[in-house]
């Protein structure tokens, strides 16, 4: 432990944790608003956005890709609304039509275009490349104070940190209106809160978190972190503040334990290759949810008769 850990494991672990928390924070509100599957839809439609951005600019660069992904998310939201209104179709089905069609379009564009020279393929989009985000210039813990080495940190780390700041700031500034409009929309409106724009902003913030996390860790973690930590936290407490705190804890635990299990777990069993960190992080978050569902103090619906398990 030491120099090897800092160079190889510290940055991916931190990036995974930041991504997990950035997704879990808005996930809390989406969960309570019965919009949990928006994260699923966003993470599917990001792919065509990134591919189109690549086809236009010809390079795999962060800014155009983020713009492309954000554009795709907006197109998806408009399309879902249009299908709902024009066809009077229920939102779940409208969402299903939109994200499967856009994802399919993205895959076909990707397969048609020549991406052999760059690191862009469907598997990357699904699983991310967390393991490859290493910090080659680190020589040990001392590097954390070494400005020259710090300059070569993987760019995903500061970017995700920035996005997490934005998400946290949004949650903190709009805490009261978010809370009111989530639990009682009518009351929030009577208090003068504009719930429509607020709900839309929440989806945009979630999309921002999803896009930034998607780039670094792939879409599985994004979907898992939008839903599993907040869902587990929901079973632990009745207070929104505590729920958000629990969800941050669960997200962190999933990211750290998942990364450790994926990297070192197979070694404990005598295998010599690591397994997918993204998959393992999602797995750990599922295990946490499973424990919360069986032992969580507030797992039952309030008012429902206590059932023997």
């Amino acid at each position: 432990m030491g120099e090897e850990f800092v160079a190889i494991s510290l940055t991916p672990m931190l990036i995974g944790t930041l991504a997990a928390i950035a997704c879990a924070l808005p996930g809390n509100f989406l969960l309570l608003r019965r919009q949990a599957l928006i994260g699923d839809a966003i993470s599917h439609v990001v792919l065509p956005g990134i591919v189109v951005a690549f086809l236009i600019t010809g390079v795999v660069a962060a800014v155009p890709m983020m713009l492309g992904a954000a554009g795709a998310a907006v197109v998806a939201v408009v399309m879902i609304e249009a299908i709902r209104r024009l066809g009077k179709i229920e939102p779940g089905a409208a969402m299903g039509v939109t994200f499967t069609a856009m994802f399919a379009g993205g895959v076909l564009l990707l397969e048609q275009s020549d991406t052999s020279t760059v690191h862009l393929d469907v598997e990357h989009a699904l699983f991310g490349n967390l393991e490859s985000l290493i910090w080659l210039d680190a020589t040990g813990w001392a590097s954390l104070l070494d400005l020259e080495a710090l300059a070569y940190l993987p760019v995903e780390l500061p970017r995700l940190f920035g996005v997490l700041l934005v998400v946290a700031l949004f949650t903190w500034v709009f805490w009261r209106p978010l809370k009111l409009s989530t639990f009682d929309e009518g009351f929030a409106q009577s208090m003068g809160i504009r719930t429509g724009p607020l709900g839309f902003t929440l989806v945009i913030v979630a999309a921002l978190a999803a896009v930034a996390a998607f780039d670094a860790v792939g879409s599985i973690i994004v979907i898992a972190m939008f839903i599993c930590p907040p869902a587990a936290a929901r079973l632990m407490t009745n207070a929104l503040g505590a729920q958000v705190a629990w969800s941050v804890l669960f997200a962190t635990l999933s990211a750290v334990l998942g990364y450790v299990f994926a990297g070192y777990g197979p070694l404990w069993f005598g295998a010599d290759n690591a397994v997918s960190a993204a998959g393992m992080i999602a797995t750990v978050s599922g295990l946490i949810l499973c424990f919360a569902a069986v032992f969580g103090p507030h797992r039952a619906r309030s008012g429902a008769p206590a059932e023997a398990l």
Binding site: A36, L37, D40, C228, A231, R234, T283, S302
Partner: peptide
């Protein structure tokens, strides 16, 4: 549990 069906769907799907 008190989780809604959409949360259960998302959790099972991703995990």
């Amino acid at each position: 549990t008190r989780l809604a069906e959409d949360a259960a769907i998302g959790a099972v799907l991703s995990v």
